[in-house]
Every structure is written in C-alpha cells, then in structure tokens.
Amino acid sequence: MKTLTREETRAVAELARLQLSDAELDTIGAELGQILEHMEALAEVDTEGVEPMTHAVPMSIRPRSDEVEASLSAGRAVGAAPDAEDDFFRVPRVIESRGEESS
C-alpha cells in the first residue's frame, strides 16, 4: 500500500500552515497514501477533449453599479479578533526594525 514519507507529508503540512507532530505526520501520510490510491481510478477515465467543470452551474458574472453602501464598521469587524487595537488586528512583528538589524 502506498504511504507518503514523513518528509513528503511535512512538506505538504508546511504549505498548509499546519504544525503537526511526527505521530500525526505518520498517520496522515499513511491515510493520504491509501486515499490517493483510491483516487487513481480517475486515471482510467478518458477525458480527452473534455472541458473541466469549474462551477456547479453555468453562470456569468453580473456586474453591479459602483455605489458606496453601508458595511460593517472597522470596530465591529475587528471585534471578534483574538488580539486587536484601535480598529487594527494585532500580529507578531513581521518586519525587523533598523535597530535590530545593526545589533
């Protein structure tokens, strides 16, 4: 039976921004292998010249007039955040300051 290696599984987990334990990586690697094996059945379908179906029903995008309407206030929008200040989401620093670079 097909199994993804721990390293293959870890690479996918990093793309998905999921921190997983080694035990989880091994379990999911084995399960994905088994599930993907089942998916191989699709390879036998002749799809030559078949358009991919990207949506459930054919539809065209309806334009709307560009008018300003009332929407959620910034305060309400950040109100449920785990950390917010003055209508902003607070996150750990992502850019190092000049001082830190030189130190």
Binding site: L42, A43, V45, T47, V50, E51, P52, M53, T54
Partner: peptide
C-alpha cells in the same frame, strides 16, 4: 485537480 474537474463534467 484538473483531471477530477474533467470527470466532474462527464
């Protein structure tokens, strides 16, 4: 993904 979208059409 693309293969599955084509089978979805079928």
């Amino acid at each position: 993904y693309l293969k599955a979208q084509k089978v979805r059409s079928l």
